[in-house]
Write a protein that binds this DNA or RNA. Structure first.
Lengths: 188, 188
DNA sequence: ACCTGAACACCGTTCAAGT
DNA sequence: ACCTGAACACCGTTCAAGT
């Protein structure tokens, strides 16, 4: 009657995350995850509904990590929205570079598994909404936040996809874009 | 000695494209493609190296279609870059709505199969570069084009992912963003 | 020259049987 | 209560054999 538990859900998500970053989504296989935590694939189904649910948990962890980073970053310049804006943009890029596969997955969710993640993503990007509100004014806060998040993630997704490999300093291009976005969104 | 050919590469790509839009990438299975063109899966390997190569051809077709649409759109307002800018933004959105799965795939390429597609994508977005050059000036044409394409595709990818489902008129938000981008990029 | 059935390796998932 | 081997369905791909 014992049957001691040999792993945890946290360890399973850890393993899936590591496999994702190491070899892309196709590398996160139930067998590879199981082997990494020291059990057999069928045992994973005691902790996780199926593979899509596991990938959803990985995406959720990434969203939480991004949200924590953004909140921390925004808190560091509480009364200078312009400075906060630039710092947030740099933080998102740092996160994208640190976890490229997870970042891409956040904005390219699987069929329907990631439906609940939309709320989590909205929660995670609250600091951006807040800064946008202070820059653009309450009336256009939502539009401004959407333009900003879309622009930054679009830039980063294209950068990660290698679309900017030809020509020029990508760091400078990002800084240039951030500055122009700031002007585009700020009310004055 | 006959062995008449029973299909064509074009028909195969057609079938894959249709399956992709109908059921996502996981629906474009070698067996499903083969069935749709009236042969058996192994015969596909006479025309296509493997599944990734086939998906690459689908992406290539989408890029070509987008490029043709953009060229056509830009040609319609040859001496009003502001009008051309807005028209291009609307054309990209129309394309994304018409072929959502293909659009997402263009900006989320598979591992390495889509490496050559970067060039094709650059070619397809030449009209955007041209308009950006006229708006921002030659010196900053590349940065402006990158900001614009990143912003528009980011917005559309998020829209297709359902990230904007809560709150507000997405059409208006897009128009608002396009207008602000125009101001952000235009030199005067 | 193209097409096919058979076969192989691999994957997600289920389930009865172990402890 | 968790873990396992065995099994099933499905997929990508290869290949010898057909025409």
């Amino acid at each position: 009657m014992p049957a001691r538990e040999r792993t945890t859900l946290t360890a399973i998500v850890d393993a899936a995350f590591a496999l994702l970053e190491a070899g892309g989504l196709e590398a996160v296989t139930m067998q590879a995850v199981a082997q990494r935590v020291g059990i057999r694939a069928p045992s994973l189904y005691k902790r996780v509904r199926d593979r899509d649910a596991l990938v959803g948990l990985v995406v959720g962890r990434a969203v939480d990590g991004l949200g924590a980073l953004l909140a921390e970053t925004a808190a560091r310049s509480p009364d200078d929205p312009r400075r906060a804006f630039v710092a947030l943009a740099e933080a998102v890029r740092a996160f994208a570079h640190a976890h490229p596969a997870a970042f891409r997955l956040v904005f390219n969710p699987l069929p329907d598994a990631a439906r609940a993640d939309v709320d989590a993503l909205a929660r995670a990007s609250a600091p951006v909404l807040s800064v946008a509100a202070r820059l653009a004014g309450e009336a256009e806060a939502l539009e401004a936040a959407r333009l900003v998040t879309a622009s930054l993630t679009g830039f980063l997704l294209m950068e990660l996809s290698g679309a900017f490999r030809l020509g020029g300093d990508v760091d400078r291009a990002y800084a240039w874009g951030v500055e122009r976005l700031l002007h585009a969104v700020a009310v004055t």
